[in-house]
């Protein structure tokens, strides 16, 4: 059972400050809903907590169970109990899902799990998520549908059993049945020993997993803290009340322009006899 303390966290991405002083405490048993308009720092918070090198912490601390983990490597944070279910899980060609999961599980064990134990764990987790077992034998996320990728993130969460689960838009791309499966998996870990931080734009998932608390992040800061009633208000009214009631102007998120890329074909020639004869 671990407590996470975030103190005055400032984070930059490509020299632009995104988070401008986040203070947050998360205790075991808590499920925190994180709300906010697009591009205001919700995913940045998760990436910074997980140690993604693209997100630079310029001020502040992350304390896990009394230990300062601000400068810890990504894998060490994971082994200490942090888990990030990503918004866009990447496809890693050639890496077999099950082999990767077994390596990840063994990385946090003193004694490696036996093949039998691992397959039992995997079998239980795939059944809980109504996932076909053969997804585990395919390349990691390669060719998976959006929904399969999200289920695969939750599968990893169930097997690795982390203390602090950060779920970044885990409901996007899921059909109704899949949302139920994912929420049931989350609920199975809402046992007082784990804590959750969940980003979503939709009340449906939150209604299923019953968050204990909710925050709204705007302009890189937590502008409002409250209970789950905040979720329903945002669902009904959007974020306009932030401005009208609290006088906070919501900055427009600036979409990054595409990198300039040139695509060309080099000396490819295909000609069949039929084409030639014409």
């Amino acid at each position: 059972m671990k407590e996470l303390l975030i103190e005055n966290l400032h984070v930059e991405v490509e020299n632009k400050e995104i988070l401008k002083g986040i203070d947050l405490t998360l205790k075991p048993g808590q499920t925190l809903a994180i709300l906010g308009p697009n591009g205001h720092g919700k995913s940045t918070l998760f990436n910074a907590l997980m140690g993604n090198p693209k997100y630079k912490i310029t001020q502040g601390k992350i304390i896990l169970d009394g230990e300062d983990i601000t400068n810890l490597s990504v894998d060490e944070r994971s082994k200490k109990g942090l888990f990030l279910a990503m918004q866009n899980p990447c496809e890693v060609p050639g890496v077999i899902n099950a082999e990767f999961l077994r390596s990840a599980l063994n990385a946090r064990k003193e004694k490696p799990v036996s093949l039998y134990q691992f397959y039992k764990l995997l079998d239980n987790a795939t059944k809980k998520l109504n996932m076909p077992f053969d997804l585990a034998n395919r390349n990691l996320n390669e060719g998976f549908s959006g929904g399969e990728k999200k289920r695969n993130e939750i599968l990893q969460m169930l097997i690795l059993n982390p203390d602090i689960c950060m779920l970044d838009e885990i409901d996007s791309g899921l059909d109704v049945d899949a949302i139920n499966d994912v929420s049931n998996a989350i609920k199975s870990l809402q046992d007082g020993n784990h804590c959750f931080m969940v980003i979503s734009h939709y009340a449906r998932l939150f209604n299923l997993i019953n968050p204990t608390d909710a925050i709204i992040i705007v302009n890189g800061k937590i502008v409002l803290k409250g209970d789950s009633s905040l979720i329903n208000r945002v669902d009904k009214e959007g974020y306009e009340f932030i401005k009208s009631e609290y006088g906070i102007e919501i900055e427009k998120s600036t979409e990054k322009s595409m990198n300039q890329v040139s695509i060309g074909v080099c000396a490819t020639k295909e000609m069949s006899k039929n084409i030639h004869e014409k």
Binding site: D75, L84, V92, V95, A104, Q156
Partner: peptide
Amino acid sequence: FYLLSRGLSVLEAKKLIVLG
């Protein structure tokens, strides 16, 4: 980053990526 975020060391992650 994805592999490291699941607890694999840099060496293990690189080995998996190269094997892949």
